[in-house]
Design a protein around this nucleic acid. Structure first.
Lengths: 209, 209, 209, 209
DNA sequence: AATGAATGAGACTTCATTCAT
DNA sequence: AATGAATGAAGTCTCATTCAT
């Protein structure tokens, strides 16, 4: 059984190895511009092995996306269910996404560039999963509105969109190297996102705080 | 010379015809998923004619993007140079983009999906153009900060990103059919974007207004 | 219009050129063993042109088969509708098939080897067409049975099978080079087929004639 | 030694298990359309084990064919050497083949479809074995012609071809489900084949009988 | 200007076979 | 004997681009 375990462990490792390599290659060249052989080369395995673990190039990206996105959904759901002010909750969500980027920029780049914005390909495929995230965030907002924490004249859906859109745009800024991304910058971004989205750009909002 | 004019007019019309067809096809199928022949078919012209007017498939998308983006840059620059509060200026910019979408959703869809978010292909190519837009918006913000109209603890660059990101996310919401897009909804979005981004989600910001 | 005609004529010629080349290659190497590039090479055209005229490798074989088989069906139907004894009619049908082989052995080889005997691939696809031929021959037999020309204790279906099976086996004999195939041999085969199938192998049948 | 025997017995069983599975898979999907893993799955053994017992996919089909074909050759040779009229001998041969089909339709289907008619692949490989069968049948005919039992104006080779061709066509009729194949139909086919091939289709031959 | 046939490089995917365990 | 992961050659089909007319 030890041998069985270690064998399947080795297999799992190879699969992970290919997945990780794919993320690097997707991030570097883009999904369309890279060939399956690039992934195999990057992973240091034979061409055919990629197809031993995945049925298609598409499935690799699907897996990369779902693996991470499901974690995100889980985290948002937990945050939503937990205690704290709306501001704290939104901060926790933004932090998680930003930390995800800091921890593995390539994965987030692939997810943003190849999936959540790819309206004609993987974005369409995973639309319901993407929508789930918006819905969970909207849920956070809706509860806070009922509690009088957040203004009610912006619909929860719209608020969720603005919140997530700001975060994704920050990620895009890093991806495009339009924003500084030193560890301090990345850390600071969390607060900036929350401050901007919660207090607004107006001085009035600031004064009030 | 009249004949020369009318001939070149006819040529310009054909070019426009192909360009418009390309936009519809890109919007419907995505740049990668469509073939040059699809564009020719949609335009009702022969396959080879596309190459008479454009040197490559890429150049068609480049043209679509630049034509519209240059207008956008021009408008933002004018707004920036004009009179009015920061809020009014941002409102004018958001309005222009939203109206652009209302007027021709396909063009904006193509621009957002295939260019401004396509970090590994056209986004990279047109990065400086995209950056120009951010810079102009940041300019509006910077001036307003100097005038004490907008809070200064958010960098103009970050503010521009959040502002444009929210707009683009709203467009994405329409593109993905996640947001209602009746004429009223589209119109209302302008104000919602400005209110959200200027006043923030917090009730405090609202009360202050 | 002359130019249009000649252009489409040229196109038709290219298509024919590819089709003829495919027949030679299929006959020489077999459908599965040959590559599309072999067909293109044999035809002296570029790889892609094959796909300009045919949507797939399969479609080429389908076309080869149907083109010839439809002629065969037409001939059998005409023979059936015409005058003459059953023996004459069967002779005419056998003659046509044998002459087809003499005229273009490759086409018949491809049809027999790749289609009418390929129970798991093209034979299944074209089963109804193959069945039509059997049915037409059975029709000839049935009429002759009613007229008292042929014995009635063998079902028309079975008779058609035996008749066509003998012919196909002769073709197979030539294809495998098991039978001599000089022009005289081929010509003589027509009568041998008819004599054998009509009179039987027994001396009795012969004596009776 | 008992253990050795039982061990090699077990090995022989596994080999047989794989062979039988291969026949089912070949019959169902065709040789080319099936993968080695399909055979392994059907046999319920591991992928690699197939290669422990056979050196290649081809060798499996070779084995299937030769095993059965050698029996056929042996039977025909015995019939030829035995007593009885030509008609009886031919009946015995036809009966054996038909019974073979009844007993295991898949094996005969594979032999006919993948070997004896596959002029460009296995048919070529096993041509001499196939030829042996024709030669043995021709031998039966030749002897009968010398004895005055069968007409002499049809060459033994041709007669053998017609005889075997009719049988194979009947098998093909069953394989394609063009002929009824109830036990009675299958049984009756034996006589029909002999009657047709010996007496011919003409009424004259029948009357004479 | 206009047509569409012709070109050929390139990518995904399949699968027989090998090999380490 | 048994397993199934690993290998990589090979083939089909696509499609941007060119070119002759």
């Amino acid at each position: 059984m030890a041998s069985t375990t270690s064998r399947s462990q080795a297999a799992a490792d190879k699969r992970r190895q290919i997945l990780d390599a794919a993320v690097r290659v997707f991030a570097r060249q883009g999904f369309h511009a890279c060939r399956v052989s690039d992934i195999a080369d990057e992973a240091g395995v034979a061409y055919g092995l990629v197809y031993h673990y995945f049925s298609s190039k598409d499935e690799i990206l699907d897996t990369v996306f779902l693996e991470r996105w499901n974690v995100l959904l889980h985290v948002i759901a937990e945050v939503d269910a937990g205690e704290g002010s709306a501001r704290d909750k939104l901060h926790a969500i933004a932090s998680f996404i930003v930390d995800s980027y800091r921890h593995d920029p390539d994965v987030m780049k692939v997810i943003v560039v190849e999936v959540t914005r790819a309206a004609n390909s993987f974005g369409r495929t995973h639309l319901s999963k993407i929508r789930e995230a918006y819905a969970l965030i909207a849920e956070v907002v809706a509860k806070a509105q009922e509690a009088g924490e957040l203004r009610s004249d912006v619909t929860p859906d719209f608020a969720a969109l603005a919140f997530y859109g700001t975060i994704e745009q920050v990620l895009t800024g890093w991806i495009f190297a339009l924003l500084p991304q030193s560890p301090e910058d990345v850390e600071a971004a969390k607060t900036q996102i929350i401050d901007t989205i919660c207090d607004g750009l107006d001085v009035i909002g600031l004064r009030a705080t």
